[in-house]
Computed example of a mutant assay.
Amino acid sequence: MQSVLYRLGQARQQLGFVKPLSAAEYEEAALYLPPSALVLFRTMAPADQRHCLRVCQRLRERGCQDREMLAAALLHDVGKAQGRVPFWTRPAIVLGKKFTPALLTALAISPYEFGERIIPRWQRALSYAWWHAEIGANLASAAGLSQQAALYIRTHHEAHGPAAALHAVDEVS
C-alpha cells in the first residue's frame, strides 16, 4: 500500500502540483554543482529538480560527504529532462519492470542507436525513459562533472552497484 501511495504522490508532482525551487534551494544545489552543471539541473522539470534535491538532502542526512555522490544525486534523473520522457512513460516503465520486463527490454532501444531510423514517438519516449541513466551520465560529464559522478548517475538503478547509497535513497524519495 505504501508503494501505491508513493507512486500516486509522484504522479501528482509530475502533473505540476509542486512548487518550483526557491532561490535558497538553488543555492543549496550550487554547493555541489559547477555552474555548467547547475544550468543542466535547471533543465529538469520542477518535480524532478525537487526530487533530486530531496535525494541529495537525504544522502547528507545519512552521513554522506562524498561530493561526487551528492552532485550525482542532483543530476541522477537529468536524462529525463527537456521533454525526452513525458509523464505517461514513467508508470509504463514502473509497470513494465514489474510485470513484463522482457517486453520492456525489447521495446527500449538505446537512443544512441536511433540514427536515421524512424522510431514511433511512443517507443522513442519509452526508450529515453529506460536509458535515462546513461543519457544523464553523458550529459553530466559534458557539463563538467567528474567521471566518478557520471558513474554514479549511470549506475543509480543498481541496488549493489557503485551508487548503491544513491539507489537506496532514490527508491524511497
Rank of each mutant, 00 (worst) to 15 (best):
R117K: 15
L74R: 04
N138G: 07
D48N: 09
R124S: 11
G115Q: 11
A92E: 08
V39S: 12
I135E: 02
A37E: 05
A81E: 03
S127M: 11
S110M: 06
I118E: 12
G144E: 08
L53C: 11
I118G: 07
A72H: 04
A108C: 15
T89M: 08
R58H: 15
R62V: 07
Q57G: 05
L31C: 14
W88G: 06
V85Q: 04
Q147L: 12
V85C: 14
L40I: 11
A129N: 03
Q147N: 12
R54C: 05
W122I: 10
I118A: 13
V78C: 14
S110P: 08
L145T: 04
A102V: 02
A37H: 04
Q57M: 13
P120K: 07
L95C: 06
C64K: 03
G144H: 09
R121C: 05
Q148F: 02
K97P: 00
A106Q: 09
E68H: 15
A125R: 03
T89C: 14
R124E: 15
P101N: 03
F41E: 04
P120T: 04
V55K: 01
R42V: 05
H132T: 04
V39P: 02
R58L: 15
I109P: 00
D77Y: 04
F87T: 07
N138W: 07
C64D: 11
V94D: 02
V39D: 12
D48K: 02
L40R: 07
P111C: 12
F99E: 02
G79M: 05
R60K: 15
L31H: 12
Q65R: 15
W88H: 12
Y32L: 10
I93W: 06
L74C: 09
